[in-house]
Amino acid sequence: MKALTLFALLAAATSLGCSGNSGPQSFPVQGKVTYEGKPLSRGTIIFNPVNEALPASRGEIQADGTYKLSLAQKGDGAVPGEHRVIVNSSTQVKQGMEIDDPNYELPRPLVPIKYSSLSTTPLSQTVKAEANTIDIEL
């Protein structure tokens, strides 16, 4: 009898932990990143909430410049509120190229470095408690 009761309590506790939302509510965020009027073809975009207690969201910039932010799951978005935005984009290292190869080239930034640091980025955006389309022009 005691084993059955213990099993029932463990099952209930496990289902409570799995069924609840374990983090802050997020809302979809997508858009397009352009630099000098042209779509940025690669990189990462990060939305960092001004409220540092909240988690940041990130997305991969696609070849056409589009992105979708993810917080806990792919494409789930970002927490609502004001965010500082970081954009990282650089050239790609040639496939199979090793650093000791004489033809090796370090990746070069495709956008000004100021956009890649939280302390220097001039970019900020507000995520609303709804689906968001936020285009970023650099």
Rank of each mutant, 00 (worst) to 15 (best):
I86A: 07
A78N: 01
A78G: 02
I99M: 14
S90W: 00
L69T: 04
K68I: 11
Q92H: 03
S89D: 02
E98Y: 11
T91V: 06
V85S: 01
M97W: 03
S89Q: 01
S70C: 04
G77R: 01
E82L: 13
N88H: 09
S90I: 00
Q92K: 09
Q92S: 09
A78Y: 00
D101H: 13
P102H: 11
L71K: 08
L71M: 12
D100L: 13
L71N: 14
I86F: 03
D100A: 13
V93D: 02
Q73R: 15
D100E: 14
A78I: 03
K68E: 13
Q73M: 09
V87P: 02
I86G: 04
I86W: 03
P102T: 09
G75L: 05
I99D: 11
T91R: 05
Q73P: 00
V87Q: 01
D100N: 15
E98T: 15
P102V: 10
T91Y: 00
D100K: 13
V87E: 00
P80R: 12
T91D: 04
I99W: 11
P102D: 10
Q92V: 11
V93F: 02
G96H: 13
G77D: 01
L69A: 07
Q95D: 15
I99H: 13
V79D: 00
G75K: 10
L71E: 04
S70W: 05
L69P: 04
R84F: 09
V87Y: 00
M97C: 14
A78K: 02
E98P: 05
D100Y: 13
A78W: 01
K74H: 09
M97H: 06
A72S: 13
